[in-house]
Amino acid sequence: MENCNIRILDMRKEERPRNRLMDKGAGSLSDSELLSIILRTGSKKENAINLAQRVLSQYNPKELSRIDTQQLMKISGIKMSKACQIAAVFEIARRLETFVSDDKPKINSPEDVYRRLYPYMRESKRETFIELSLDTKNQIIREDTISIGSLNANIVHPREVFKVALMQSAAHIIVAHNHPSGDPTPSREDIEITKKLVETGKIMGIDLLDHVIIGDCRHFSMKEAGHI
């Protein structure tokens, strides 16, 4: 490990993270070197590289992306400015995962739902029930969070779901929720609420196209499983 008291400016130019990024690209840098560029500076006791190494010894990149600024500021050497820099970088990364150039992205499959919602749902410690209101071409009109439940339960009523759909003049809807446990296998309650939404949709003239359950790096489609 580098001497903590050596300033990055005192390192040879070809060894400095910024210079290496410019010469060889960001992919040539380690996680700690990339984080040191984000942090920009270290402290009187350690340079930015050593500070980044210490941060990553406490939290791996995935864990670091999930903690908030208050938790970040509990790390020695990380104050408000650096905490905000870290949080901002991960938020941009999350938005990039769901970015589409089309103002009204189209949903063609459960995988489309998963890719859109997973970057946010993977960090939720509570079940979050989300509704996608779609037009006749299955383009997203609006995305709404209908309810946020407990660690392992989410209570939602059909009237809340279809109230939103009616307000958006939706032709179809897709609903989704996460399982904080990481296992997307549906519970008995998940199947029951799906059936209720299907029946209510028939009465309201708004089809429920799917109910997607999102777990850790995987998902479950009620439609593909034959529950819709």
Rank of each mutant, 00 (worst) to 15 (best):
I92N: 00
E189L: 12
L51S: 00
L51N: 04
L96N: 00
T69N: 05
K62D: 10
D102T: 06
S124F: 03
D207Y: 07
L64Q: 11
S65C: 04
E143V: 12
D68T: 12
I86D: 06
K62Y: 09
G42K: 06
N3R: 14
L96A: 10
V156A: 08
M121L: 15
P186Y: 05
K125H: 13
G226R: 08
V212R: 05
S32D: 13
P119M: 05
I173H: 10
T41W: 04
H219F: 15
I130F: 00
I213P: 05
I130V: 13
A153N: 11
I130W: 04
S81D: 04
K104L: 02
D112M: 05
P186H: 03
A26W: 11
I86A: 02
K45S: 10
I214T: 01
M204H: 08
N138T: 04
K196T: 00
D207M: 11
R16T: 08
A153C: 02
L117S: 00
R20T: 03
N154K: 10
D144Y: 05
R218N: 03
K79E: 13
G25A: 13
R7C: 09
S169Y: 12
E91Y: 01
H172E: 04
L21F: 14
N47H: 08
D144T: 15
K104A: 03
S101L: 13
I67V: 15
G27A: 14
I141V: 10
G205D: 01
N60I: 06
P184A: 04
N3T: 06
L34C: 14
N154T: 11
E192V: 13
I107L: 14
H177N: 09
V212I: 13
L134M: 07
S109I: 07
D135L: 07
A48W: 01
T185K: 12
I107R: 02
R40E: 14
P158K: 07
T41I: 07
S147R: 13
D112S: 04
E189F: 12
G205N: 07
T136Y: 15
P105S: 11
L34A: 11
L151F: 07
R159Q: 13
E14D: 12
I203Q: 12
E14I: 09
N5K: 15
H211T: 10
H172L: 06
D207N: 11
N3F: 02
K163T: 01
I86P: 06
D216T: 01
S36T: 06
G201D: 03
I228M: 10
K13I: 15
V164G: 04
L197I: 11
K137G: 11
V156L: 11
I214S: 03
D112H: 03
K195G: 02
K62F: 10
R18Q: 09
I6E: 14
V212M: 01
N50S: 03
K106V: 12
P119N: 10
T69G: 02
I155V: 14
S147W: 00
S187E: 03
S109N: 01
L29W: 14
V100E: 10
S133H: 08
N47Y: 05
E199A: 15
E199M: 14
E2Y: 12
S187Y: 05
V198C: 12
R18H: 08
R7H: 04
F220D: 02
S169V: 07
Y114W: 03
N138E: 14
R12Y: 14
